[in-house]
């Protein structure tokens, strides 16, 4: 899932500026699961903004609401009344949700209340690790189910580099070396031949290097 982190309160306040009516809009999907922008976080942020406004003597009304999936126009239609009430909407969805709100409600500015970080998985409660860069050309079958594009600091296809020590990445020793993991996994599967051959240079056109990407499914178009 998409992983995000809420921006600091001070930054969010600076994005709101002088707005009188503020809507904090959470999302019930990815950012809810990573505890950055669900119902609870939207409610808490709205309360914090209210208290802060009070302390500073700013005239401001702050409401909060939730959309189950802010990344889909169908879903954000549900909050039309609140959206049009607001001068500024603080989106606690990922960057997709924030953009969908701006597209659906062009007369209102929706600002980001979170930083969208990566596609990842929880490795323990409250700890999330990057797993995928959405490069558009998956090779996990070649690398023991461990992605070197997302998890090697150099995205090497023929690692590990000389900075791999005690199973850790030299760039950030709190991260495992992806290629150490790949080696161990393939060794245990008796499939080392998969990385004994040279993996060729990648075609990055399917990644973001090819420009904005689009998927068209002719079979389901209306």
């Amino acid at each position: 899932m998409i992983r995000a982190q809420q921006k600091p309160l001070v930054e969010i306040e600076s994005l709101i500026g002088q707005a009188k009516n503020v809507l904090v809009l959470g999302c019930g999907t990815c950012t809810a699961v990573c505890l950055a922008g669900g119902e609870k976080e939207a409610r808490t942020l709205a309360a914090a903004l209210r208290v802060s406004a009070q302390i500073k003597g700013v005239q401001r009304e702050v409401r909060h609401s939730l959309v189950q999936r802010q990344c889909e126009p169908e879903f954000v239609r549900e909050v039309e009344e609140e959206a049009l009430w607001a001068d500024v909407i603080v989106s606690l969805a990922c960057g997709i949700g924030c953009q969908v709100m701006n597209e659906r409600y062009p007369e209102r500015l929706t600002v980001p209340g979170v930083n969208t970080c990566f596609l990842g998985a929880p490795i323990e409660h409250g700890v999330f690790d990057e797993r995928c860069q959405a490069c558009g050309d998956c090779i996990l079958h070649l690398t023991g189910g461990i992605c070197p594009i997302a998890r090697c600091a150099k995205s090497m296809l023929n690692g590990p580099c000389g900075g791999s020590q005690h199973g850790k990445c030299e760039v950030n020793p709190s991260n495992p070396c992806a290629w150490q993991l790949i080696y161990e996994r393939l060794l245990s599967l008796n499939k080392l031949e998969l990385i004994s051959a040279i993996l060729p240079a990648k075609d990055w056109r399917s990644a973001r290097d090819g420009g904005q990407r689009r998927i068209v499914r002719e079979d389901v178009r209306l």
Binding site: K154, M156, L157, G159, G163, E170, I198, A201
Partner: peptide
């Protein structure tokens, strides 16, 4: 392949790594 830029004097830079040393 080259040392990662985080060890150098422009750690803010974007890296390339389009190819690796073997490629």
């Amino acid at each position: 392949t080259g040392d990662h830029q985080s060890f150098g004097n422009h750690p803010q830079s974007k890296n390339v790594y389009d190819l690796d040393s073997i490629q």
